[in-house]
């Protein structure tokens, strides 16, 4: 039964959190993740033969190591000197569009096939990245999508065909 926490401490705690560096947030996230991982590993089904080193041993070991490492990172990043967020100077629009477009690409690939989806991807993305000459990007997209498809089918590496049959 220790003394009840003093109010000032709590304020101090909040302050401390506010001044956390990004690394401390990452370290905390990692620590939680590694605890989860160790629990999942511990709950893996056991093999029935006693002489086998079982499937949970290695994961539990590295999970614990990862936990220790995240504590180390937490302690190591005591430096509370405020640094500029690395996000500041970035123009996220281009990257975000690329990720979104890729997601659409992956989603469409099995249904509309490699040639069409690759053509669309290669036609649109240069524009997003600031390329304004449509003629070049369209021709390039056509040649690359059909060329690679043909190349890989001659190499007997199947690429998705899609409903149109190519």
């Amino acid at each position: 039964m220790g003394p009840p926490p003093h109010r000032d401490d709590e304020v101090g705690g909040v302050k401390l959190i506010k001044s956390w560096t990004a690394d401390r947030w990452i370290a905390s996230g990692l620590a939680v993740f590694s605890i989860f991982y160790v629990i999942l590993a511990y709950n893996l089904p056991r093999f029935s033969m006693a002489t086998i080193i079982d499937a949970h041993v290695f994961p539990m070991f590295i999970g614990i190591v990862q936990f220790a490492l995240s504590i180390w990172l937490w302690l190591d990043s005591r430096d509370t000197a405020k640094k500029d967020s690395p996000w500041k100077s970035l123009e996220l629009r281009g990257g975000l569009f690329m990720v979104l477009l890729s997601a659409v690409y992956i989603e469409m690939l099995p249904s509309i096939g490699f040639i069409v989806s690759t053509f669309i991807f290669l036609a649109i993305s240069p524009y997003i990245l600031g390329w304004k000459n449509w003629v070049i990007s369209l021709v390039l997209a056509a040649i690359l999508s059909m060329g690679t498809y043909w190349l890989f089918s001659t190499l007997m590496v199947p690429l998705p065909k899609g409903i149109l049959g190519f």
Binding site: M98, S102, L122, S125, Y127, L129, W131, S137, L140, L144
Partner: peptide, 8 residues
Amino acid sequence: PLLLPMIF
């Protein structure tokens, strides 16, 4: 802008 999509 042409090269990056190709890498993708």
